[in-house]
């Protein structure tokens, strides 16, 4: 039997090969066959989750709720010291200097990354901005969001901080971060489906030990992680409760 592993579509494409190496490691470690299935967008991944076509997933906080509470998934581990934070970015020459100065009618460019969009909309609340008095355009990638800002097609862009900070110097020199989130408790998490719960302990132990061998360290590097950290069910329940308070 082949199990299905998938990664949240918001992962950074620079680490695509890392996830394939991870999938190979997974098979060697567990002795089970895993197929890495990557979905182009959240829509098609959610469809697959709804149809129980996912056995193991590196999920974002937004999807964790359905997976844990409705589908019986169990958290295994998350990347150590890595939380998901968002940043609202302006064109370098924008006259705006504070969130409160952002005007109604603001033209927003973003991707369809649900937790980044949620965090950024929350950061606009002090300016009394919301979906009704702003316009937004959805791009396929963050690079296209940057382009919209640089070419004057948008007044503000929503980014995952990690992605924004990794943009090239040339691109970044034409942009200016206005406000960064400091939430600290929202992060991606590796979740194991009900069909695989029997391997929970073994997998968790192997992930945490990854950091101990040179081969493991190079795998971590290819994912841009420093180590895996174990996640207990209550940690994830807490994160889900927190996400719940943020949804309006």
């Amino acid at each position: 039997m082949t199990y299905h592993f998938t990664v949240s579509p918001d992962f950074n494409p620079s680490y695509l090969s890392g996830w394939f190496i991870f999938n190979t490691w997974l098979q060697r470690q567990t002795g089970e066959a895993f197929h890495l299935e990557l979905y182009n967008d959240f829509e098609s991944q959610r469809q697959a989750i709804a149809e129980d076509k996912v056995d193991l997933i590196y999920a974002n906080s937004y999807d964790a709720s359905v997976l844990v509470r409705d589908k019986g998934f169990m958290p295994v581990a998350c990347p150590a010291g890595k939380s998901d934070e968002a940043v609202i970015v302006l064109p370098q020459d924008s006259p705006i200097q504070s969130v409160e100065a952002l005007p109604p009618g603001l033209r927003i460019s973003s991707t369809n990354d649900p937790d980044v969009n949620m965090m950024c909309m929350i950061m606009l609340e002090p300016a009394d901005l919301n979906r009704d008095n702003t316009t937004s355009k959805t791009c396929d990638t963050y690079i296209l969001v940057a382009k919209d800002l640089i070419q004057g097609h948008a007044d503000a862009g929503f980014f995952l901080q990690e992605t924004f900070d990794k943009l090239s110097k040339v691109v970044k020199s034409q942009l200016r971060p206005l406000v960064r989130s400091q939430i600290q408790v929202i992060h991606h998490v590796l979740l194991l489906g009900p069909s695989l719960l029997q391997m929970h302990q073994e997998l968790q132990r192997a992930l945490i030990a990854m950091n101990d061998s040179p081969a493991g360290q190079s795998l971590l590097e290819s994912l841009n992680f420093s180590a895996w950290e174990s996640v207990e069910p209550e940690d994830t329940e807490f994160m889900i409760d927190l996400m719940d308070t943020l949804e309006t």
């Binding site: 409160e100 929350i122 609340e125 002090p126 300016a127 009394d128 807490f238 409760d241 927190l242 308070t245």
Partner: peptide
């Protein structure tokens, strides 16, 4: 219970 608080607008 969990509570999360954020910055409100001046108007609110």
């Amino acid at each position: 219970f969990t509570s999360v608080r954020r910055k409100p607008s001046r108007k609110k």
